[in-house]
Simulated scan of single mutants.
Amino acid sequence: MKMTYSSTVFCALLALTSTSAFAQATVQSCNREVTFDEPPKAAISNDVNLTEMMLVLGLADRMVGYTGISGWKTLDASMTAGIEELPELSSKYPSKEVLIGAGADFFFAGWNYGMKVGGEVTPESLEPFGINVYELTESCIHIGEKAAASMDDMYDDLLNLGKIFDVKEKAVDLVEGYRAELESYTAGLSLLDEAPRVFVYDSGEDAPFTAGRYAMPNALIEAAGGTNIMNDLEKSWSTVGWEAVVERNPEIIVIVNYGEVTAEEKRNFMMSNPAFADLDAVKNDRFVSLEYVEATPGPRNVQAVKKLASAFRVE
Rank of each mutant, 00 (worst) to 15 (best):
M1C: 08
K2G: 10
M3K: 10
T4D: 07
T4N: 05
S7P: 00
T8W: 13
C11F: 15
A12C: 13
S29D: 08
N31Y: 01
T35F: 10
K41R: 12
A42I: 02
S45M: 10
L57N: 11
V64E: 11
G65V: 01
Y66L: 14
W72S: 12
D76A: 13
M79C: 02
M79P: 06
T80S: 15
S90K: 05
Y93V: 11
V98E: 12
V98M: 05
G103K: 00
F108A: 05
Y113L: 10
E124G: 15
P128Q: 05
T137Y: 04
K146C: 08
A149C: 13
Y155R: 03
Y155L: 03
D157A: 06
D157S: 06
N160F: 00
I164L: 02
K170M: 01
K170T: 03
V172L: 02
Y178V: 00
E183A: 11
E183G: 08
T186H: 02
D193Q: 11
S203K: 11
D206M: 07
D206P: 03
F209W: 12
W237F: 13
S238R: 08
E243N: 13
N249I: 13
P250L: 14
I253L: 12
V254A: 06
I255Y: 03
V256E: 05
G259Y: 08
M270F: 13
M270T: 14
P274A: 11
A277C: 07
D280Y: 01
V282C: 10
R286H: 12
F287D: 09
Y292G: 06
V293Q: 03
V293I: 15
E294A: 09
V305H: 06
